[in-house]
Amino acid sequence: MENKIRVSNLNFFYGKAQALYDISLEVPERQVVACIGPSGCGKSTFLRTLNRMNDTIPIARADGEVIVDGENIYAPGTDVVALRRKVGMVFQKSNPFPKSIFDNVAYGIRINGIQTSKTDLNDRVEKALHDAALWNEVKDRLNTSAFGLSGGQQQRLCIARALAVQPEVILMDEPASALDPIATQKIEELVVELKRDYTIVIVTHNMQQASRVSDRTAFFMLGKLVEYDSTQKMFQNPNEKLTEDYITGRFG
């Protein structure tokens, strides 16, 4: 299996404070990688290094390499907008725009200056809503406000919005932590469904969620990658005692 992302010796700093220490791992194409670890362990910081989302923080600095499709995304001259189109992101709290359902999904296509006919745009919005498993619930009210959707639907709308610009990788930062169990289940089913076409890296506090949806799991602690292996191995027989202690709730 090809690696979509290869991270080598990545160190990350917020000013003088080091948040990530010498992280190296590979994300295989069309697989789901879950990042777990206690609060403040660096897993969200790590996620955000994969599409340079941390660039928005002025004092943030990264060294090391993050190779996506063979290109180091930290190399000078990298087109960050193109990078984020390729490596999309879904956040913990759903954040639809104060627009209609349709315009939310079409937003990325329009802002990226992707030239489409009206029919093409409609098709792409419909496909993104289908892929996000939301189409059947919203097809009759595409022009109503996105705020009228439930929390779970809003989160799937945000996923549809991310999918509409046809990314190859989707980063998800605790996408279901604010949702009820049914909405959570839908998101989890969606993640499994999406990996047919996309590479997914998901940060989650919910260990069962990591074990249910991911192929590989990375356990972070105090900014270090303690262990990274197949999810099966991590949850049945991890190599590191720290991993075992964390996933069995001996500390947290």
Binding site: M207, Q208, F235, Q236, N237, P238, T243, E244, I247, T248
Partner: peptide, 9 residues
């Protein structure tokens, strides 16, 4: 309790 790792085994 959803045991994992050694607990599960």
């Amino acid at each position: 309790q959803h045991p994992a790792a050694h607990d599960l085994r």
